[in-house]
Design a protein around this nucleic acid. Structure first.
Length: 609
RNA sequence: GCCACCCUAGCUCAAUCGGCAGAGCAAACGCUUCGUAAGCGUUAGGUUAUGAGUUCAACUCUCAUGGGUGGCUCCA
C-alpha cells in the first residue's frame, strides 16, 4: 500500500478520533495557560496536526525554556482541575464583541461572517456557523470538536517542551505578522508519549546530515559556500553508481545522451521565459565582454537548442535527450538543508519531443520508468501529486488552452496507470503542469523527487517544429522529466531510507577484508585483489586495531560483507563471511563468495544472503 | 529572507558566580598478533566561529558579522 492511501485513510479516521479531540483540547488549554502568563498576548489559531498540535501567539517577548516548562506545568494543573468544554453558537456581532481585543480572531470572524472562508482561512463552500468552546476561564472561537472535560487529556502524556518554539507567519503569508508557534504533542498514555519521543531520537540518528558525515559521503564547507555540497570519494561512488544505473535504463528505452554547458546567454532565458518568470530563483547575470549570461537554473533551453539545430521529421519522434545537468538556483538561506535543499544540484534531466498523438503513451512510459527507479531501491513510501496552475497567479507562461490540454493528458495518464494521485492547485512549473513523486524525510518533511511535466509552452516560445506526414510543419509537445529529481536530494532521502545500509550494488565499499592478525594481511590483500578483479569495491582493514574493533568499526560503516581471514581460511582458500547485520554466513571458498556476491550485486538485490 | 535557539580539539561533549581550557572517540607513534561489535601506553591536537566592546580579569556579559539547527515562507 502506498503512503498516500495509508495517510488518506488515517487522516479520515484521525479527525474523528479521540486523539484528535485530545490534541485540539490540549491546544486550548495551552492557550489559556499562555494568556494567564501573558495577558497582553494575542492568540491566532491552534489546530491538531499529525502527532500533536500547535497554537500561534503574538507575544510581548521571545519565549525561554523556563517559560515553556512553566506553561506546561500550568497546563497539567488546568487539566487536573477538570473543566468541561462547553460549546455555544454566537452571531457574528456577538463574536466580535467577545473577541474585541483579539485582532486575529476578529479577522477570522470577518472571514466566517463574509462566508467562503473557514476558521483557518481555507476556502469553503459550506455556510459557516460561528461557535465557541469554553473551558474554565478561556473561551475560544472554534468549530470543535473537543473532549467533554479536560480530565480526558492525560497530563502525563503531554509535552510542549519537546520542540523549540518556532516562528510562523500569520495565515502563512510572509508579508504578514510573524507569530510565535508553540508545538505540543499529546497521547492517550504516557507510554505512547515516551515511544514517540524515542522515535524522534532514533530519527535524528538516521538524518542524512549526521550519517553523511559518519559514512564519509559528503561535506558542506562554508568557505565553498552554503548549499554547495562537496562529494567525498565514497559519496561520489554512490552517485556514479546511480548515474550508471539510470543511464543503462534510459539507453534501453531509446534515450540519447547530450551534454551542455553551465551558463547561457540571458536572451536564451528571455526566450524561454525563465527570465523573468523564474527570476527570483536565479543568480544575477554574469557580464562576459559586455554580454549577459546566466548560470543555468534549468537544462531545458539548452536541450531545446539542440532540437532546433536541425529539421526534424515526424519519423524522428519521439526524441529523448538526456543529461545529468547541473543547475544553480538561488534558495533563501533559511531553507537550505543538507542535501535535500541546496543551491547547486544535478538533475537527471531529460526532454522528450513528441507529436501530440504520442504524448499520452510517452508520458505513461516515463511514469513507468520512474516507478521502476523507485522500485529498484525498494522505495514505496511516496505520494503522487498532480500540480496544476493557479489561475489567479501571473507566474505562468502560455494560454489557457494549452494548459488545459496538458493537465488533461496528465490526469488521463494517471487514470490509465491507476495511480492514486492528488491534484494540488498552484504546484505546476511555470511552463506546464506536472506529476510529482513526493517522499518524506526522517523528520517527516516532504520532498519532491521524481517529476514528469507536460509542456506546450516552450515549444511555442521557441517555435519548435517537425515535418508531419502531410508534409506540413507541426509543433511538437515536450515532456520534461527527472526520475531522481536531483541526485543530491535523491541521495539524501536514500541515505535515510536505508539508514546508511545501502544494498550491495550501491554500497561505496561492498566488502572489507579483516585479517585475524597482521600475519594474515598478505592473504587479505591477495583476496581483495581477486574481488576487485571480479568488479567489486573492496578494502582491506590494515589499521592497527584488533579484529573485534575492526568488526565493530566496519559494521558501523555499514559495509555489507565483512570477510574475516585467518589461518583456517588460508588453508582452504576461503573467507569467513559476516554480514553487517551481525549474521554469520560461515566459511566460504573465495570463488564461491565471489559468485555469490557478484550475483547479488548484478541483480541489485536488497538482501545480502 | 523572517522568528527563535546554538557555535569550545577532526567528531561527541565538559569547564561552579566572570578567575590558569578538559575528557572520550578519532589521529600519529610504540607495545600486543589476538577467530566475530571497543587490547594497552605515549604524543600531538585550541587566538573557545570571526571582529569589536564592557571589565583588574571574558569560553562565560553586550553588539555586529559568518555558519548551523528548529519552524514559517519558497522549491528538485
Amino acid at each position: 500500500m502506498r503512503f498516500e492511501e495509508r495517510s488518506v485513510r488515517t487522516m479520515e479516521r484521525y479527525v474523528d478520533s479521540k486523539l484528535y479531540r485530545i490534541r485540539h483540547s490540549a491546544a486550548h488549554v495551552m492557550a489559556q495557560a499562555v494568556l494567564e502568563k501573558f495577558p497582553e498576548a494575542k492568540i491566532a489559531i491552534g489546530p491538531p496536526i499529525e502527532d500533536g498540535f500547535y497554537y500561534d501567539f503574538d507575544l510581548p517577548r521571545p519565549l525561554t525554556e523556563e517559560d515553556l516548562a512553566e506553561i506546561e506545568a500550568r497546563m497539567r494543573e488546568i487539566i487536573r482541575e477538570g473543566y468541561d468544554f462547553t460549546r455555544r453558537e454566537v452571531s457574528a456581532d456577538e463574536a466580535r464583541a467577545l473577541f474585541a481585543d483579539q485582532p486575529y480572531k476578529l479577522e477570522l470572524i470577518e472571514g466566517l461572517d463574509r462566508g467562503g472562508q473557514d476558521e483557518y482561512g481555507e476556502k469553503t463552500s459550506e455556510p459557516v456557523v460561528i461557535s465557541t468552546y469554553t473551558q474554565d476561564t478561556f473561551e475560544d472561537l472554534c468549530r470543535g470538536p473537543h473532549v467533554a472535560n479536560t480530565r480526558e487529556i492525560n497530563p502525563d502524556a503531554l509535552s510542549i517542551t519537546f520542540k523549540a518554539p518556532a516562528g510562523a507567519y500569520w495565515r502563512g503569508d510572509e508579508h504578514r505578522e510573524m507569530l510565535t508557534r508553540i508545538y505540543g504533542t499529546a497521547w492517550e498514555t504516557a507510554e505512547e508519549l515516551e515511544e514517540y519521543l524515542a522515535l524522534l531520537e532514533e530519527a535524528k540518528k538516521r538524518d542524512h546530515r549526521v550519517l553523511g558525515v559518519k559514512l564519509d559521503l559528503f561535506v558542506i564547507d562554508p568557505l565553498v559556500g552554503k548549499g554547495l555540497p562537496l562529494w567525498k570519494p565514497k559519496g561520489a561512488i554512490l552517485r556514479e553508481t546511480l548515474e550508471r544505473f539510470l543511464r543503462q535504463a534510459q539507453m534501453e528505452r531509446g534515450y540519447q545522451p547530450v551534454v551542455t554547458p553551465h551558463i547561457g546567454k540571458l536572451d536564451l532565458y528571455r526566450t524561454s521565459g525563465h527570465y523573468p518568470y523564474y527570476k527570483d530563483s536565479q543568480y544575477s547575470p554574469i557580464d562576459v565582454d559586455g554580454e549577459e549570461f546566466l548560470l543555468k537554473p534549468m537544462n531545458c533551453p539548452h536541450h531545446i537548442m539542440i532540437y532546433k539545430s536541425e529539421l526534424h521529421s515526424y519519423r524522428d519522434l519521439p526524441i529523448r535527450y538526456a543529461e545529468f545537468g547541473t543547475v544553480y538556483r538561488y534558495e533563501q538561506s533559511g531553507e537550505l538543508t543538507g542535501l535535500t535543499r541546496v543551491r547547486g544540484f544535478t538533475v537527471d534531466d531529460s526532454h522528450l519531443f513528441v507529436t501530440p498523438e504520442q504524448l499520452l503513451d510517452e508520458f505513461i512510459e516515463v511514469v513507468r520508468l520512474t516507478q521502476f527507479v523507485f522500485g529498484s531501491m525498494g522505495m514505496s513510501d511516496f505520494r503522487v501529486r498532480v500540480g496544476t496552475r493557479d489561475p489567479e497567479s501571473d507566474k505562468y507562461v502560455g494560454d489557457d488552452a494549452s494548459w488545459e490540454h496538458a493537465t488533461a493528458s496528465i490526469i488521463q495518464a494517471c487514470e490509465q496507470l491507476d495511480l492514486n494521485y492528488v491534484v494540488e492547485v498552484g504546484e505546476a512549473a511555470f511552463y506546464g503542469p506536472k506529476l510529482d513523486f513526493i517522499f518524506r524525510d526522517v523528520l517527516k518533511r516532504e520532498w519532491q523527487l521524481g517529476t514528469v511535466q507536460v509542456d506546450y509552452n516552450l515549444p511555442e516560445r521557441f517555435e519548435l517544429e517537425y515535418i508531419g506526414e502531410d508534409n506540413e510543419r507541426h509543433r511538437p509537445v515536450m515532456i520534461h522529466r527527472a526520475p531522481f529529481g536531483s541526485l543530491e536530494r535523491f541521495i539524501g532521502i536514500l541515505i535515510e531510507h536505508f539508514n546508511g545500509a545501502f544494498p550491495a550494488w550501491l554500497a561505496p565499499v561492498q566488502a572489507v577484508l579483516i585479517p585475524v592478525s597482521d600475519r594474515h594481511l598478505d592473504y587479505a590483500r591477495e583476496v581483495a585483489q581477486q574481488l576487485r578483479a571480479a568488479g567489486m569495491r573492496v578494502e582491506v582493514d590494515d589499521s592497527s586495531s584488533r579484529m573485534g574493533a575492526k568488526i565493530r568499526h566496519q559494521t558501523q560503516m555499514r559495509v555489507p560483507w565483512l570477510l574475516i581471514v585467518g589461518d583456517r581460511d588460508i588453508e582452504k582458500s576461503a573467507v569467513s563471511v559476516r554480514l553487517r547485520t551481525g549474521e554469520d554466513l560461515g566459511t566460504m571458498g573465495v570463488k564461491e563468495f565471489i559468485s555469490h556476491a557478484t550475483y547479488l550485486i548484478d541483480v541489485k538485490s536488497l538482501a545480502l544472503d
